[in-house]
């Protein structure tokens, strides 16, 4: 008995000490970590978290024209949104817009990237051209397309006329306005998407293709069985980023159509802008912003859930 007793005691004190040292170390590394994070925590707080919480806060109030809160209304702003035909239309428009924009952007960029990945003479020139829209600002691109869409002098209608078709009121015809804006957006997004996809293509090991060549595989067989599956992580990234971007489109709408005709191109972000800075309804605008945030969050989460498992990472 007397032999065992002291052993237990020393053991316990030892464990106790070890525990204390461990906790001290944890504390130290936590503080160090915080120190490293401090700059980004400050930046994020000022420019992201503060505005975000402020928005959520505002969405429960009525405001005056200066944006100061007047009356607490609870969920009223939200309830009003879901019966507001204009907002509902803007949500529909936004989804339609994503649908018109993202798939064509990815498909066209893929085709361009596959072409630009071939070992041809002067391919560097085409790579530059294909990615050049990345360097064009939204404003410049929109003005450029504004000229193309001009109903009388625009190049598009000139082409239609010379081929014997009727001119189209691109930006004022409700049937065409959203498509016209989509076309502009596709053109603007191709540069970025192309560049990312080309990067993805070039990172595929060339010996995979060489091996396939030796085994006698055709061009499209290689495209279908090697290129597309090997590119799937890049696709996933590009599609996710494109969708988020498209949800947040603002500049080209403002310059090309101002949401018209008859709210035909009124997307959520534009609707938020109008609510806040034209109608001075900061509460309602904040509620819309929160809804948009939740929509994007859900879409992205859904994508991760559905697609990510199927994506092949090396």
């Amino acid at each position: 008995m007397s032999m065992i007793y002291p052993t237990i005691e020393t053991n316990e004190t030892y464990l106790h000490q070890a525990e204390r040292v461990k906790r001290q170390n944890q504390m130290k590394s936590f503080l160090k970590g915080m120190l490293f994070l401090l700059p980004s925590i400050i930046l994020f707080s000022v420019f992201v978290f503060y505005p975000m919480f402020k928005t959520i806060y505002l969405s429960f109030f009525l405001t005056n024209a200066q944006g100061a809160t007047t009356v607490f209304t609870g969920w009223d702003n939200y309830k009003a949104l879901f019966v507001d035909p204009i907002f509902i239309k803007s949500v529909k428009n936004t989804f339609l817009f994503v649908f018109y924009t993202v798939p064509p952007t990815v498909i066209i960029s893929l085709i361009l990237a596959v072409i630009a990945n071939e070992k041809l003479k002067g391919i560097g020139f085409f790579r530059t051209v294909f990615s050049s829209t990345m360097g064009v600002s939204v404003a410049a691109a929109s003005v450029f397309w504004l000229y193309l869409f001009n109903p009388t002098m625009g190049l598009l209608n000139k082409v239609l006329e010379t081929s014997g078709l009727d001119a189209i009121e691109w930006l004022t015809d409700p049937k065409w306005a959203l498509i016209a804006v989509s076309a502009t957006t596709i053109w603007m997004n191709i540069g970025f998407t192309f560049l990312i996809l080309l990067g993805g293509l070039q990172s595929i090991d060339s010996s995979l293709y060489e091996s396939a060549d030796i085994e006698g595989s055709g061009y499209f067989y290689k495209l279908r069985r090697i290129t597309i599956p090997m590119l799937s992580p890049t696709f996933f990234f590009v599609i996710t980023v494109s969708i988020i971007n498209t949800f947040q489109t603002f500049g080209q709408i403002d310059i090309l159509t101002q949401g018209g005709p008859a709210n035909g191109t009124n997307l959520i972000v534009y609707s938020i802008y109008r609510e806040a800075f034209v109608n001075y309804q900061f509460g309602a605008a904040s509620a819309q912003a929160v809804v948009l945030f939740i929509l994007i969050l859900l879409m992205t989460a859904l994508q991760f859930k559905l697609v990510e498992r199927k994506v092949h990472y090396q």
């Binding site: 010996s207 995979l208 090396q314």
Partner: peptide, 27 residues
């Protein structure tokens, strides 16, 4: 002819079976 590469050039997204049969399927 057939060729074995230094890095084996196996398709990482395909199973062993699909890898082996890749060329035959293509032809």
């Amino acid at each position: 002819l057939s060729m074995v590469f230094q890095n084996y050039a196996l398709y990482p997204h395909l199973t062993v079976q699909e890898n082996i049969l890749f060329g035959l399927k293509g032809r």
